[in-house]
């Protein structure tokens, strides 16, 4: 269960070089939304828009490919995408909504569908939920501390940030790269992540991340019937290049290891929360 239910897993990247030019990894999210938009499978998607300050994303409802392109790339800070999910069906009047989110955000979407108390006419309109792998996330102030204090790069100079191979890396437009080991960034992890039991967005229609695949490629889990139908169509239409996940390095083994590590660590945190005080514990949302 550490990797969730899935129908198939591949290594893939977008066929369109224009998407890859500024996507975080294989451009899976942007390419799949763009395809779904063109096919009429979604009318728009909630994505992490650029926001007013550098690397401080705001959720936006993208209804054009241009808007999807604007939102490419990972911002390692909270972007409350689910806050726009009802709005997408109301002010924007969308009947078929796409949403991208971290595993916890996809969990929120599924709860909104199964227990839709305050989510009238939302659940049935979620046509495509794309999950992105996630080890942890940071508050904006935490990210600023990592980038400006530890990496010594101004937020506005950064052209890309990435987490991989045990390091947090910041790239600038002028070609500088600044890296710090993840053990320095750990303390900035937002508290809510310490109880998170999902690494690869187990409840998404399709989930994707860089781990397991070579640079510039993505690992993709196709999970639900809706996801499978869409992915099949996109492959048929030539929107993605793929390789067998068995043929690439480091492959699924690393994904499984990281997922197991995360879940084990956070399950331990949950257990410790139960006896956090003296005869008093902290709340466990899962029981």
């Amino acid at each position: 269960m550490v990797l969730g239910n899935y129908k198939n897993c591949v290594c893939a990247r977008a066929a369109d070089p224009a998407i890859l030019s500024a996507s975080q990894d294989g451009g899976i999210v942007t390419q799949l939304f763009a395809f779904a938009l063109e096919e009429g499978i979604i009318d728009g998607a909630v994505v992490a828009g650029q926001g007013d300050e550098p690397y401080k994303p705001e959720p936006v409802v993208a209804t054009t490919v241009a808007e999807l392109m604007e939102a490419r790339g990972t911002r390692y800070t909270i972007c409350p995408n689910v806050s726009m999910i009802k709005e997408a069906t109301r002010s924007y009047g969308l009947d078929k909504v796409g949403i991208v989110g971290t595993p916890c955000q996809i969990q929120a979407v599924r709860k909104a569908q199964l227990y839709p108390m305050g989510m009238r006419s939302v659940g049935s309109k979620v046509a495509l939920a794309i999950g992105i792998f996630c080890m942890e996330n940071f508050s904006y102030q935490g990210l600023e501390a990592m980038v400006e204090d530890l990496c010594n790069v101004k937020m506005e100079s950064a052209s890309k940030m990435d987490i991989g191979k045990g390091k947090f890396s910041v790239y600038t437009a002028r070609g500088a790269v600044s890296q710090i080991p993840l053990k320095l960034t750990n303390k900035f992890e937002q508290p809510g992540c310490k109880v998170c039991l999902d690494y690869v967005a187990n409840l998404a229609d399709v989930s994707t991340g860089s781990v397991g695949s070579p640079d510039g490629w993505s690992t993709v889990f196709v999970r639900t019937k809706a996801g499978e139908t869409l992915w099949g169509k996109a492959i048929e239409a030539g929107y993605f290049e793929t390789q067998s996940i068995e043929d690439v390095k480091p492959g699924l083994g690393l994904v499984t290891k990281l997922a197991t590590d995360k879940i084990t660590k956070n399950q331990k945190n949950l257990d410790e929360r139960a006896s956090f005080g003296v005869g008093k514990g902290l709340r466990n949302p899962y029981i």
């Binding site: 909270i78 409350p80 916890c104 909104a112 939302v122 102030q141 937002q190």
Partner: peptide
Amino acid sequence: FDVINQGLCMGCGTCVATCPVRAITMVYG
């Protein structure tokens, strides 16, 4: 009381979408 103070909020924004009177906004995630 029961989410943020308990160290459980991860900033998904579901509460914002849920509120019938738009009393909730996201501040610092």
